[in-house]
Lab assay of single mutants.
Amino acid sequence: QLNLPENTDDWTKEDVNQWLESHKIDQKHREILTEQDVNGAVLKWLKKEHLVDMGITHGPAIQIEELFKELRK
């Protein structure tokens, strides 16, 4: 059970990391997002292209984008 703020805009980069870990996103990809200071407010704007530009491969980038879309519903 994750204990994250209800509003994703309030998520810290550590919260984002924890959420991605719960969805089995590889540590190396989570570390990239942490290094790039991606918090919840930033995550909602990220598209696959942004994630790929940061060095995340296409498969996980699509997965992260789709997971966040599902979360926002």
Rank of each mutant, 00 (worst) to 15 (best):
Q1K: 12
Q1Y: 10
Q1F: 06
Q1D: 08
Q1T: 09
L2S: 09
L2D: 11
L2Q: 07
L2P: 03
L2I: 08
N3K: 05
N3H: 06
N3R: 00
N3W: 00
N3A: 00
L4V: 08
L4S: 06
L4C: 09
L4W: 01
P5V: 01
P5L: 02
E6F: 02
E6Y: 08
E6R: 03
E6C: 01
E6M: 09
N7P: 03
N7G: 08
N7Y: 08
N7L: 08
T8W: 13
T8I: 13
T8Y: 11
T8E: 06
D9W: 09
D9Q: 11
D9T: 10
D9A: 09
D10S: 09
D10V: 09
D10I: 11
D10W: 04
W11Y: 11
W11K: 00
W11C: 01
W11G: 00
W11Q: 00
W11P: 01
T12I: 00
T12G: 05
T12M: 03
T12W: 00
T12L: 03
K13Y: 11
K13F: 08
K13R: 08
K13G: 05
E14Y: 04
E14H: 06
E14A: 06
E14P: 00
E14G: 06
E14M: 04
E14C: 02
D15K: 03
D15V: 03
D15A: 04
D15N: 09
D15L: 02
D15W: 00
V16T: 01
V16C: 06
V16P: 01
V16S: 00
V16W: 03
N17I: 02
N17S: 06
N17W: 08
N17M: 07
N17Y: 13
N17A: 10
Q18I: 02
Q18C: 11
Q18L: 09
Q18V: 05
Q18D: 12
Q18K: 12
W19Y: 11
W19D: 00
W19A: 02
W19K: 00
W19T: 00
W19N: 00
W19P: 00
L20H: 00
L20D: 00
L20K: 00
L20V: 02
L20S: 00
L20I: 02
L20G: 00
E21K: 07
E21P: 01
S22R: 03
S22I: 05
S22H: 08
S22N: 07
S22W: 03
S22Y: 10
H23M: 12
H23Y: 08
H23Q: 09
K24H: 11
K24R: 07
K24S: 10
K24F: 07
K24G: 09
I25P: 01
I25F: 14
I25Y: 02
D26C: 10
D26E: 06
D26Q: 05
D26G: 05
D26F: 09
Q27P: 08
Q27N: 03
Q27H: 04
Q27D: 11
K28M: 10
K28T: 11
K28I: 12
K28F: 10
H29N: 13
H29M: 13
H29K: 03
R30S: 02
R30H: 02
R30L: 11
R30D: 02
R30W: 04
R30V: 04
E31G: 07
E31A: 08
E31I: 07
E31W: 04
E31P: 01
E31D: 09
I32H: 06
I32V: 07
I32N: 08
I32K: 05
I32E: 06
L33K: 02
L33I: 11
L33E: 03
T34H: 05
T34A: 09
T34V: 07
T34E: 09
T34M: 02
E35V: 04
E35D: 07
E35T: 05
E35F: 09
E35N: 04
Q36L: 13
Q36F: 12
Q36A: 13
D37I: 14
D37S: 14
D37G: 14
V38H: 03
V38N: 01
V38W: 02
N39P: 09
N39T: 11
N39K: 10
N39V: 01
G40N: 00
G40D: 01
G40Y: 01
G40L: 02
G40R: 01
G40Q: 01
A41T: 13
A41G: 10
A41L: 12
A41C: 11
V42C: 14
V42D: 15
V42L: 14
V42F: 14
V42M: 15
L43D: 01
L43G: 13
L43F: 05
K44S: 13
K44R: 07
K44D: 13
K44E: 12
K44Y: 05
K44C: 09
K44T: 12
K44V: 07
W45T: 15
W45A: 15
W45D: 15
W45N: 15
W45E: 15
W45Y: 10
L46W: 06
L46C: 05
L46D: 03
K47R: 10
L51S: 02
L51N: 01
V52T: 11
V52A: 11
V52G: 13
V52L: 10
V52K: 13
V52N: 11
V52F: 14
V52P: 01
D53N: 09
D53S: 07
D53P: 06
D53H: 10
M54N: 04
I56N: 00
G59D: 14
G59M: 14
G59L: 14
G59Q: 15
G59K: 15
G59F: 14
P60K: 15
P60H: 15
P60L: 15
P60T: 15
P60F: 13
A61C: 12
A61I: 01
A61P: 05
A61Q: 04
A61V: 01
A61T: 02
I62K: 15
I62Y: 15
I62R: 15
I62N: 15
I62W: 14
I62C: 14
I62P: 03
Q63R: 08
L67F: 12
L67V: 03
L67W: 14
L67I: 03
L67D: 14
L67P: 04
L67T: 07
F68N: 12
F68L: 13
F68Y: 05
F68H: 05
F68I: 13
K69T: 14
K69M: 13
K69D: 14
K69Y: 13
K69F: 13
K69S: 12
E70H: 12
E70W: 04
E70A: 10
E70L: 07
E70R: 10
E70T: 07
R72G: 14
